[in-house]
Design a protein around this nucleic acid. Structure first.
Lengths: 221, 221
DNA sequence: AAGTGGTCTAGACCACGTG
DNA sequence: ACGTGGTCTAGACCACTTG
């Protein structure tokens, strides 16, 4: 069984992107063009580029084209970077134009949130929505929940992060401008105090092409 | 712009799988059947199931069918579980038939490995290939490298794990029996001693449907 | 007006598993 | 012999962006 055409084509582009021949942000030829160059139908090209999409090597913009990911080698590091403000985290990753906006409200805790935070249902908690862009492109959005008397995360001694690929919630998808059905990288964070109580919860979504990999540094014993 | 049909269909199956209505291991109807039930073409169904595949909720077996993932809620936990032997790790996750096989050889270090481990190129190092199955199905394969005088990982005080989605190497793809072009979850592990030297490196691949999420527990400060 | 990606259709061949 | 998923083709419409 030979290698399917779409795997071959995807592999060629992956090499050229990783090798720097195709620089970040560069527009790829259209489906039709790639198809013609490779002597296949455009369906095969779509499958090939889907593969690159799911690896975060390219990003597609509807009605404009497919572009090489802006940060093909960027890595998200935990826990160091995750203890800083979003501004500092992203500005340490980049010297570009980072914009962060926040929206804060007090809401009654749902049963899940109340249980997680050790409160009673309906008790008021703080909900912060944080949105970040880099050079105008959305790069993250998060929902953070904590008791109203918690001001920051400096009291935490443990961080637990759960990483998965998920269909983003509607508000997250809208902000990240993902196409319907496109998965996002999601990180569910729980900041724990020394007595193992959760003092802050945060659900963060990133576009697939934001990070090449996630790095976690853990002390043993 | 309404929700595309394939997202709707994928969402319906995701709910039924997560909710337990479709139990692990159960075979899904064929593409043609699902297509007919939903009044769409089989192409749409393929896209829908691709979505579930990439989320690890189902697994496809060529010429047999699509099956609900065996472990739709299994989570990989670090670092606790990763300090144990592979046997213990997997047996703690499951009461099923776990088989682990190892292959050990001494090889001269490549330049990358030599640099990482603080040795000189060509110096002999130990290479261990570990393959694991659960009820006969492959669930992981890893390449581990360490200096010949390192016997285990008990001397490590730090663990750094890098998680990404990649096209597996040929031997890994063959063992996991992934279809061509299918991505695997890969974890690159580095075990560090107290003086920050790397005493062991391991590259592990998992099938996409093995874990629902990866959890990392980190001490702060 | 032309080109783009996103969605969807109808149809085909292949190699292999199952009954 | 039949059904399966995997691959591939040719063609279509849509809504929007770009020149």
């Amino acid at each position: 069984m030979p290698e399917p055409a779409y795997v071959r084509i995807a592999g060629e582009y992956a090499l050229r992107i990783r090798g720097g021949e195709l620089p970040p942000g560069m527009q790829l030829p259209s489906y039709a063009e790639i198809a013609q160059k490779n002597g296949v139908s455009d369906i095969v090209v779509r499958k090939a580029l889907e593969l690159l999409l799911s690896q975060g090597l390219v990003r597609s913009v509807r009605r404009r084209g497919i572009f090489v990911a802006d940060r093909p080698n960027l890595v998200r590091v935990s826990p160091e970077r995750q203890m800083e403000t979003a501004e500092r985290t992203f500005r340490n990753e980049s010297d570009r134009d980072i914009q962060v906006e926040r929206e804060t409200e007090q809401i009654p805790a749902t049963s899940e949130l109340a249980e997680a935070l050790g409160l009673s249902e309906g008790e008021l908690i703080t909900h912060v929505i944080t949105r970040a862009t880099e050079d105008g492109r959305p790069i993250s959005i998060s929902d953070t929940y904590h008791p109203v008397d918690v001001v920051d995360v400096s009291g935490a001694t443990f961080l637990e992060e759960t990483v998965s690929d998920q269909l983003p919630t509607a508000p997250h998808a809208e902000w990240l401008r993902t196409t319907p059905g496109e998965l996002a990288k999601t990180v569910h964070q729980q900041f724990l105090s020394a007595d193992d109580r959760i003092i802050m919860i945060s659900d963060v979504s990133y576009p697939r092409d934001r990070y090449d990999a996630f790095v976690f540094r853990m002390a043993l014993k």
